[in-house]
Design a protein around this nucleic acid. Structure first.
Length: 839
DNA sequence: ACGGCTGCGACG
DNA sequence: TCGTCGCAG
């Protein structure tokens, strides 16, 4: 439920714009012969003609509805044109529609604050534009009113059939109207013009609602479709809500709406007027109660957010019924497909919108073979997102394995996965106007000039096969080498002129050792595969090259050798700990890997496994570290910097997750990093507990351009200038730098090209246009060319580094955000909460 | 065993 | 915070 807010004192003008059967329109624009015909967009044609996801208005006249199957639609409308949704990598590909939606947004965003509510819906706050119009050119003095505006529907205005437009004109131009109605009239005219412009420039029609708040605008936009607009004067609100069935109200289409009907006997939104706010709060909690009380009166203070771009990117697929995935190999195959798409989308977002994504989450739905009514759900898992297709795939698989183990617990039974999805979230803008951004842009292959290429290849030389434009996947799988990691580490060695101390040699040995093994070889011991035959459409032998997956099926019992080893080598203190931001389970650590290491290395690794010191007795070397609440400390940034060069964590192996955890306790992170870095960086320099700012080896700061920024925050006195120069950032320079090096983000577009060939399935046709993450160049303009500053986006850790007077000012901006009270929830309504209680 | 694929927001 | 759930289209 949205947070209940009162309406602001001054009336607003809010519009909701909704594209008409959008996917169909997109397809009709692509193929104009389809215009005017009954048509629908379907996905997955094979089963009962596919599922309809959009239906043209011509087809709706025949009774065709969304959620019909293609076959049903044919029955009621034999002439219907069924258009298949584009498919890529074995799943629906919505990029075509995303980019079409962005075209529309870029037009609609020109007249006021704009919130992209979905792929085909937008909210606009036209208050300022309407006020301006009222001052400068009010409708009453206009000699001609926009044609489209005259076609508006004005709720509550009796529509004389003989002269409908005359009535509308009269309402729009009334000089004796309320100020609020005049504002709405201006809003209607603005929207009419915008809709006309959208049609001219995109060939798409849309419908719109104009009202004083989002809720009413949303209701109105659906009242007259397609290609029409509806105005909701305040005087019409009561009647509108009195006849509006509760379930038709946004947010009330689900369980809450049902509870209102069943438990309170409410049929229409207006019926809610009979309940006191306290009563509604008793039933549904403070916030929801107030929200309900408000909407019964047409009150809805929700703001139109200033957001043109999505807040997350997700890719998913369902595997219903017999299609359920039953082997880790098939899961891996599909995760690879999904991650490929995700990688493209986040790379596009970076290229086009200068946004970085910070978190990767895996969701799945699963069942157990012989445990049908166990309601246990497959847990979602997340981790820091590393750019690059191969890394996404690796991490997604790690997350899956972790989730699967938790899902299965100790049960030794078959399982099936009925849906999989990977989501990239926690987006941040890259600060612009700094050397960082220039650096990113310069190094970005899609925008760079030839001159920057040298440096790029220094860091990530292309795989030999990639340089020929193609990659021999079988060969690379046969040797079982993670090329991605290998080349990067070698490159790092070269770039850093790294000297081979004996310690380094040891790490190199580890590196070589692991690089010679298969990614999931640990599962030879403990296969997670279920016992049911899987029907993956892919050839697992080619795609995974991992024989461990193809055959065996049963998970081993608890107490199997792996677990026993686990007991001996896992330190008790690790139990139950959550380390880093990986949401692995402790059980996922498999220290048995140590036994497989050369003895020399074993000794070293066991050294890392020493019990962590409880107390944090380390001295703190700088104000940066002193700001303990900071999401990013310098040492974290530096650790992050090196994260990818850590050979252990670079492998998808579940057993290496143990190393990940240990890292955080002061162990292998440094040691691993040491592999590819200056020897001075080994040891406690980057220990998560002991770290002195002075101990940063300037040697690591590289290249020169970036040095200035880094030194800006490494050395407090110099930082202010750097920070100030990124005044419109919602991501600090530090974070951007950090993220960049976390995965050579800008380079990864070349990286993803290089590796996108892996496991790629031939689709039998040219790849669909998928170059768009839902953005349009125009959308960036507002975001990056104007001076916007979100207070809440300031990284608190930078404050300590600023001059005192600036510190004070910034602290002032950072007052805690006010938030409507949502304190306590309680309920006496059994129906509404019963399902929640069960789960 | 079927509506698939997204995306947002609140809650604990 | 992360993970879960609800809701929407």
């Amino acid at each position: 439920m949205p947070i209940a807010r009162p309406e602001p004192k001054d009336a607003r003008v809010i519009a909701h714009v909704d594209m008409d059967c959008f996917y169909v329109q997109v397809e009709q624009r692509k193929n104009p012969e389809l215009r005017g015909l009954p048509a629908a967009v379907v996905q997955y044609n094979s089963w009962k003609g596919g599922g309809l996801i959009a239906v043209s208005y011509e087809a709706r006249k025949f009774g065709v509805k969304r959620s019909m199957r293609g076959d049903e639609a044919k029955k009621v409308c034999p002439n219907i044109q069924l258009i298949q949704v584009p498919v890529a990598r074995g799943k629906a590909d919505l990029n075509l529609y995303r980019s079409a939606g962005s075209e529309v947004v870029s037009i609609l965003a020109t007249k006021g604050r704009c919130e992209r509510a979905s792929i085909d819906e937008v909210y606009l706050d036209l208050t300022d534009a309407a006020k301006s119009m009222l001052l400068e050119a009010p409708p009453e003095v206009l000699e001609a009113i926009d044609e489209e505006a005259l076609k508006s529907h004005i709720l509550g205005v009796t529509n004389d059939i003989t002269d409908r437009e005359g009535n509308v004109r009269e309402w729009l131009c009334r000089s004796d109207a309320d100020h609020e109605d005049k504002l709405l009239a201006c809003g209607a005219i603005i929207i009419a013009q915008l809709r006309t412009k959208v049609l001219e420039e995109t060939k798409f029609t849309c419908s719109a609602g104009i009202a004083h708040n989002k809720m009413l605008a949303k209701q109105a936009s659906a009242m007259h479709k397609p290609a029409q607009q509806t105005v909701v004067p305040s005087s019409s609100v009561k009647d509108l809500l009195a006849s509006l069935p509760v379930k038709k109200m946004k947010q009330l289409g689900g369980k809450l709406g049902s509870s209102l009907q069943i438990d309170l006997g409410v049929k229409t939104v207006g019926d809610l007027l009979h309940f006191t706010e306290v009563k509604l709060q008793e039933c549904y909690g403070i916030n929801t109660g107030t929200w309900l009380w408000n909407i019964a009166r047409g009150i809805n203070g929700e703001e139109v957010e200033d957001r043109l771009l999505p807040k997350s990117h997700g890719c998913g697929k369902t595997f219903p019924g017999p299609q359920a995935l039953k082997t880790t190999a098939s899961v891996e195959n599909w995760l690879n497909q999904l991650c490929e798409e995700l990688s493209e989308r986040i790379q596009s977002d970076l290229d086009q919108n200068k946004r970085l994504v910070h978190r990767l989450t895996l969701h799945a739905k699963a069942f157990k073979a012989n445990d049908l009514d166990s309601h246990k759900k497959f847990p979602s898992k997340s981790c820091p997102l590393r750019y690059g297709t191969a890394k996404l795939q690796e991490d997604a698989m790690k997350l899956f394995v972790s989730g699967l183990r938790e899902f299965l617990g100790s049960q030794n039974i078959g399982w099936g996965i009925t849906s999989l999805s990977v989501t990239a979230s926690k987006l941040s803008d890259i600060p612009h106007g700094t050397s960082i951004v220039r650096f990113l842009q310069d190094k970005n292959p899609s925008t760079s000039l030839a001159g920057s290429k040298v440096f790029m290849e220094e860091i990530v030389p292309l795989h030999p096969a990639d340089q020929n434009g193609k990659r021999n996947e079988v060969a690379s799988e046969e040797i079982g080498v993670n090329n991605d990691t290998l080349v990067q580490d070698k490159a790092l060695c070269r770039r850093r002129s790294w000297t081979n101390t004996s310690k380094d040699k040891a790490k190199c040995t580890i590196l070589n050792f692991f690089q010679g093994s298969n990614s999931y070889s640990c599962m030879t011991k403990e296969t997670l595969d279920g016992s049911i035959q899987d029907h993956s459409p892919f050839s697992s032998s080619v795609l995974t090259g991992n024989q461990q997956y193809s055959g065996v099926n049963k998970i081993e019992q608890q107490g199997a050798p792996a677990e026993a080893k686990n007991d001996t080598s896992t330190h008790p203190n690790q139990t139950g700990q959550r380390i880093d931001t990986w949401t692995f389970n402790v059980e996922d650590i498999d220290p048995s890997v140590i036994d497989e290491l050369p003895l020399e290395i074993q000794r070293e690794v066991r050294g890392w496994l020493q019990p962590p010191k409880r107390a944090n007795t380390s001295k703190r070397g700088s104000s940066i570290i002193g700001s303990s609440s900071s999401p990013w400390t310098t040492k974290q940034a530096l650790n992050h910097f090196f994260k990818d060069y850590a050979p252990l964590s670079s492998f998808g192996n579940q057993r290496y997750s143990g190393a990940n955890k240990i890292e955080q306790q002061g162990g292998p992170a440094e040691a691993n990093n040491d592999t590819g870095s200056h020897p001075d960086l080994a040891g406690q320099k980057f220990d998560t507990r002991t770290f002195d700012i002075e101990d940063i080896d300037p040697f690591i700061i590289d290249p020169l351009e970036i040095q200035r920024d880094v030194q800006g925050w490494v050395l407090p006195p110099k930082c202010a200038a750097s920070i100030e120069s990124s005044n419109s950032s919602s991501c600090t320079t530090k974070e951007a730098l950090n993220d960049f090096f976390q995965d050579h983000a800008p380079l990864s577009s070349s990286g993803s090209q290089n590796y996108s060939g892996i496991n790629k399935i031939e689709q039998g046709g040219p790849a669909e246009a998928n170059n768009d993450t839902g953005t349009h160049p125009n959308q960036s303009r507002q975001k990056f060319d104007t001076w916007t500053f979100n207070v809440e986006d300031i990284d608190p850790s930078i404050i300590d580094e600023l001059p005192l007077e600036i510190q004070r000012e910034v602290q002032g901006w950072l007052q805690p955000h006010k938030r409507a009270n949502t304190s306590k929830r309680g309920s006496s309504i059994v129906h509404y909460f019963s399902s929640a209680k069960k789960s």
